[in-house]
Amino acid sequence: MSWLVGQASRIYAFRWVTLPPLVGVGMFALIAASLVVAPRESVEGEVQRVFYIHFPSALTAYGALFVVFVSSIALLWTKDMRWDAIARAAAGVGVLFTAFTLGTGAIWGRPTWGVYWTWDARLTSTLILLLLYGGYLLARNLADPTDEQAARYGAVFAIFAFADIPVINMSVRWWRTLHPQPMVVGSDGPAMPLEMVAVMMIGLVGVGLLATWLIVLRSETELLGVRTQALRARLDRRMGV
């Protein structure tokens, strides 16, 4: 275990050397692959290329929210406030990528379904996800970042929210599919050609790296914020307030 932690921290020490170039390469590969390499979809046409950003964004958002869940448990377990910084950072990135998913999805939906938005099961549950973690961020930002009680409250909320995701998805699916309504987002349809799968994989790796970098960057910013608060408190005490 300690060997693993040692290795992890050794890798983490190189984050500013390795991550930015990797993200750059990943993003370049994503653009090139999605716009040039990927074949033109025969039914939907060029607009289908949005998929290579849309789908990785969705999966990455779930990944980031999983990080929130894990670091919330770790915060309650270890009482180390650094986990709270990671949870807040990952929640911010998760909300960002959920918003990307909804935004690119709406723009893709307009030419293919004729509408930007429909109360389809998957769309609805993604929107609720955005509201859930938007509320979490709001609550954490309104409280003092060094307030341990507020951090534990946030962690408990995040645990409940993550456990709620499958239930929300299930209930929304029952709610919608029981209505007589044209299915707009069917099952994934016919199997994708191999080139499309390859481009999708590039997208997943690229966007995943991007999100990792953003979470690391944001965590360090949050930690710096905590440090500022601590310094301010010390200065106040010195001044004899």
């Binding site: 979490y136 309104l142 929300i168």
Partner: peptide, 22 residues
């Protein structure tokens, strides 16, 4: 149990209602 944060009265429903969608 949310402590005394700013705009608590609005924040509580914002936190509670999305959890209660199911």
């Amino acid at each position: 149990t949310l402590g005394a944060v700013r705009s608590r009265a609005v924040l509580l429903p914002v936190l509670t209602l999305p959890l209660l969608v199911p």
